[in-house]
Design a protein around this nucleic acid. Sequence first.
DNA 1: TCGGACGCTTGATCTGGATCAAACCTTCAC
DNA 2: GTGAAGGTTTGATCCAGATCAAGCGTCCGA
Lengths: 281, 281
Amino acid sequence: MSFDNIHSRLSTTNSFQCAASIADGCAACSSSSLCWSAGIAVDEKRWFDNLKFTRRRVQRGDVLYHMGDHFESIYAVRSGFFKTRVLLEDGRDHVTSFRMNGELLGFDGIGSQTYSCDAIALEDGEICIIHYQRLMHLASKVQSLSLELNRMMSREIVREQQIMALLGTMQADKRVVTFLLNLSMRFNERHYSATHFILRMTREEIGNYLGLTLETVSRVLGRLQTAKLIGIEHSKEITLLDVDRLRALSRRESDPLLLANNLAVPMAFRRQPIGPQLAHA
Amino acid sequence: MSFDNIHSRLSTTNSFQCAASIADGCAACSSSSLCWSAGIAVDEKRWFDNLKFTRRRVQRGDVLYHMGDHFESIYAVRSGFFKTRVLLEDGRDHVTSFRMNGELLGFDGIGSQTYSCDAIALEDGEICIIHYQRLMHLASKVQSLSLELNRMMSREIVREQQIMALLGTMQADKRVVTFLLNLSMRFNERHYSATHFILRMTREEIGNYLGLTLETVSRVLGRLQTAKLIGIEHSKEITLLDVDRLRALSRRESDPLLLANNLAVPMAFRRQPIGPQLAHA
DNA sequence: TCGGACGCTTGATCTGGATCAAACCTTCAC
DNA sequence: GTGAAGGTTTGATCCAGATCAAGCGTCCGA
């Protein structure tokens, strides 16, 4: 099984295949515009290339780090798809995030010098390993890097707040729709299609992330399909057919008419999105 | 009503009453050992006093900042009790944290230069206002401050992951018990009693935080009392009577025998905590 | 080509916690 | 004191989503 720590597996075998990619800097990285560089003042970018990130390929199932491992590095996703999960004392686990290219992993390890969750590849991909001490050494000279680092951690805090609110207040339909729209938005930011994408994770992983069972996720997706809001092919291939109504569903207080009882809603009962929502800048 | 922004209310009226407290530095702060200073190398502490935090009194109901307000400062709680909450697009809200002395508020604002939640005082208290730009200016000279700031934000990320897992996987009894034990731990760190404390928040706020209704919170607390695991006086005054069994409850996979059907459990059916839990460093 | 593992869908049933409702404290202003 | 407003408890009922249980699709290695 491939759930060994990535370091034990890769560090011994892959030096040759990384040699080439280490050589070129961040400029060549497909996620650079979403990644660190974005926050760094132009005249300081030369510093950045000095960091010479280690780049590594990972395979589906590889573990970037385990909960409890000594913290040393932050990871930037170059390609592929990852999940993080925390293990609870009672043996259950909970998926806390899905990560795609340009996103970062490992901030959880800084506080206690120990990772607080597992990070696992859901498909083959490539990551940059950013040595934290070296990063902070650089940041001590380049203030814009410190500031950008703070911004990224802050956004992570806000992202988690949103999920807490989702888990604490939304019912199943809304959770799933919100999840799909969030994926859509992130694909769009990466100039992929916002309305047609592949789910890289299983129904069980989605359910776990959203605080639902896999059966409930499956049923909600089925209902959304019946209602012609989304299309599903081969289970994993999703097409958003009516983003406006999906948005309305994710924003609106529960509206049982829209998705009740496993049935599509007769046209006559469909409602238009209502007026101004709560202001929140 | 006192839900105005603290700045509009205080900045015009309180300059005189703050004059004295601004004068003395962090050394006199009751929460200094839990607060920033802890992470700052001894020989650099003099820098710290240069920051000369603005200190402010707040009253129950005061709002430190609103969602959407322009971000300028981080807040350190010196005394009192605070909650943060996010407002959702559908009009609901969700309580995302409770804060006590020595804890910090406002990291959510760094990423977008705008606070992403409301921060509200649950009782009268006092806070330090830490101007972010000035802080970062100092951090650019004192690396240990940068590092400590990262550690604090990382711990916030980990804290939120724990809550996500709680909201995603635990049933009501466990949520409430976990909540009580978390409060107990934090009181203990502050050298207050770990087993006897006042709940500063309402049942509704607890329920909202835990993803439950106020009725469910009330019932669980009632059951815990009936089971002699806790004592409750005047609704708000909690005594933890059997911390070991409470811990077992919060750690263990659901054990319907322990707290079922609103009844205390006959001695014969009480179980001892089982062997080694999942390792997680 | 087959078989088996894994993931997904769908149906039937159950139940924990939500909801609705009422009464009871506690606090506080007058 | 009295009364009103909030907050809390408790009971009765309901229901969204969990659980249990087949059966199906798809992928992949032999």
